[in-house]
Amino acid sequence: MTSVTGVSAPDPSPTSSVASRSTGRLGDRVFSGLSIGAGTLVVVLVLLIGLFLVTQAVPALQRNEVNFLTSSEWTVSGEHPRFGVAGLLWVTVVSSIIAMLLAVPVGVAVALFLTQYAPTWLARPAAGTIDLLAAVPSIVYGLWGLRQFGPVLVPVQQFFAQYFGWIPIFAPNNGLSGNVSTIFVVGVVLAIMILPIVTALSREVFAQTPRAHIEGAMALGATKWETIRTAVLPFGKPGVISAAMLGLGRALGETLAVTIILATLAPGTPWVASLFNGGETFASKIANNAGEFDTPQKTGAFLAAGLVLFLLTFVVNAIARIVIERRKAFSE
């Protein structure tokens, strides 16, 4: 379920005794061959994709005349290519953070409601409905966000711009706070898109909280909420973290919905901190220009951006792993 990003709950590592106890029978050999092969295949695939990105990106990066990580220019053709990902990194990370800030608390709250508060007759259909959110194609989210939901959010943007405009991220930005195609709207739509992942995984771990821990808390005289705080949340925390990271992974890489909603900026537009601004994420940048990959240099430049996204997602997952591992000492 989580092989895509590698933030699955840690599986018990196969003990060598099991492997070495192989009897040499045909079924045994076939099965171990298949499972070793499948495991190797995944690793090889990841390596090959990484290799593809690196080999394509490096030649273009070598000809780049500005710092790839700190520049926001994007001129990829011609004798003097100048391109950098600072702008893309900003929009990608900020929109994903908005999505996380909204989706994780809501997802955890929904999961707690479904597992701890809702009666059974309600919990099942409600969980199914939330899973349905995951079945909505991202193109639908994109169109819905642009046509239906975005306009609803505009007054919210304007409210923030008017009363909290002194905070840089809420700056009115020349009236763009009245526009639908902003990073803010994208962040909220992304939140809705990752909500089912966060909810479903959180629900699963919360539901697995051992009865003994819950009763232990209740027997100490914990109220419902105190029981959740002392038994359910600590038990589910690693699961919630991995759920959040899975959601973040999806938000970082989401392409279609972002491409549809977010307005691109004219080249040379100066950077502003405001969320009420257009821009491009790594994924939407590549998608917007997919028709132009006519020279290796151009393709390489875009794939270099893709490589950064790849590494970014990798780092996010690695951090999630470390957090989960560190907490393992405190769990059974």
């Binding site: 051992p210 003994a212 009763e215 100490l220 005289g221 914990a222 109220t223 002392t230 600590p234 405190f330």
Partner: peptide, 21 residues
């Protein structure tokens, strides 16, 4: 019932310390 459980303690069949604490 919460007040009742605060005055009457309970120890269970299987030891159940809170694992994250």
């Amino acid at each position: 019932p919460v007040a009742v459980r605060r005055t009457i303690g309970m120890v269970f069949q299987r030891p159940n310390p809170f694992p994250t604490m």
